[in-house]
Amino acid sequence: MKILTVCGMGFGSSMMLKMTVESVLQEKGIKAEVETADFGTASSAEADLILTNEEFAKQLQGSKAKVVAIQNIADKEEVKQVLEELL
């Protein structure tokens, strides 16, 4: 399972979202690879799930990976709900 967190530069908010995802995965005891990416490379990257903001989620629809928008990237509860529905 590979999860990609995406933002404009693959540096700020995607990193923050990665930390949130990792702490949820750890809490639930799920093993998955989490990587950050910038918007430009995300569409061609190999992944099972892409987590990003609403703007980029719209534009990334149609990728091979499932794309889900996150409203508050630091909110563990929101991320947990998304992962629980999908995993």
């Binding site: 933002c7 404009g8 530069m9 540096f11 700020g12 908010s13 923050m16 918007f39 903001n53 703007e55 980029f56 409203q71 508050n72 990237i73 630091a74 909110d75």
Partner: peptide, 14 residues
Amino acid sequence: YMIIAPEVALPHSR
């Protein structure tokens, strides 16, 4: 895209 939560923006660059 720098809106990281409702009503919160995180302006930054490299």
